[in-house]
């Protein structure tokens, strides 16, 4: 069983936000508009922002200023606080370690949003809107099962959504391999943000396969996980700059 993981090299990342926008178009996250964005309701399953996030922390004095930026998808924690607190199991971890969201079940209590230490989860405050004909570009992919609705399908208001490691791409790749009557290879599955990354700073693969790039990189001395101290065991791993 694979254990999917993403590695992001902060030295190669140039904070371009290509990943954020690739994610938006792949997964149909809406633009919320100026007023909503100013309230902090912008939807970016993958976000890129400056560090430290709070202005009080020391970043040096001019001209010796350090500025850092970090792209942030879901950490796909092995011990995800978001899942623990969900009263209805609308967010769950599959047996390949992907933390997913079932849009059909979420009751919008936002317990998971307050519990996630990484600010990864997004609530649909209002009905998502695309001024015609903007909506034409929406990705038609959707993942369905009994009582389950996942994938890029447009989410209704009142529920929470999040980065899914583009799980529909995994399903698609598997189905393709099956249709072609061959084994599925790990490298057939690449999330949208990884595919577009301008700095080639993102890597994706199976952490259980010791030969995979992500396994190799995870062993690097530059490797770290964000907020390791809170015990979430993220499977999104970073490589520090320098």
């Amino acid at each position: 069983m694979a254990k999917w993981s993403m590695v992001i090299d902060l030295e190669k990342c140039v904070a371009c936000q290509g990943c954020s926008i690739a994610c938006r178009f792949e997964n149909n996250t809406p633009v919320v508009g100026p007023d909503q964005a100013l309230m902090g309701r912008a939807m970016r399953w993958n976000d890129v922002f400056p560090l430290p996030i709070n202005a009080d922390e020391d970043t040096g004095e001019y001209p010796n200023v350090t500025s850092r930026y970090i792209p942030r998808p879901c950490m796909h924690c092995e011990n995800p606080p978001c899942i623990k607190v969900c009263p209805v199991g609308a967010t769950f971890i599959d047996n390949e370690g992907i933390v997913e969201q079932n849009y059909a079940r979420c009751i919008g209590c936002r317990f998971c949003t307050v519990a996630c230490p990484y600010g990864v989860r997004y609530f649909n405050w209002l009905e998502p809107k695309w001024e015609a004909p903007l909506g034409e570009h929406l990705n038609p992919d959707r993942v369905e099962g009994e009582g389950v609705l996942e994938g890029p399908v447009v989410r209704p208001r009142g529920i929470v959504e999040k980065c899914t490691f583009c799980v529909h791409r995994l399903i698609k790749a598997r189905e393709r391999a099956e249709a072609e009557g061959r084994d599925f290879r790990a490298d057939e599955y690449v999330p949208a943000c990884v595919q577009t990354c301008t700095g080639k700073a993102r890597f994706f693969g199976d952490l259980d396969d010791p030969a995979s790039t992500v396994s190799q990189l995870a062993k690097s001395t530059r490797a770290f996980r964000v907020l390791e101290e809170v015990g979430t065991h993220p499977k999104t791993i970073y490589l520090r700059e320098g």
Binding site: K84, D94, P140, R142, V143, G145, E146, I171, K172
Partner: peptide, 17 residues
Amino acid sequence: VVSVQAAAEIPTTLQTA
């Protein structure tokens, strides 16, 4: 109670264009 387990797998299919 204190940890998280993989959810029971519900078979899902991908619908696309």
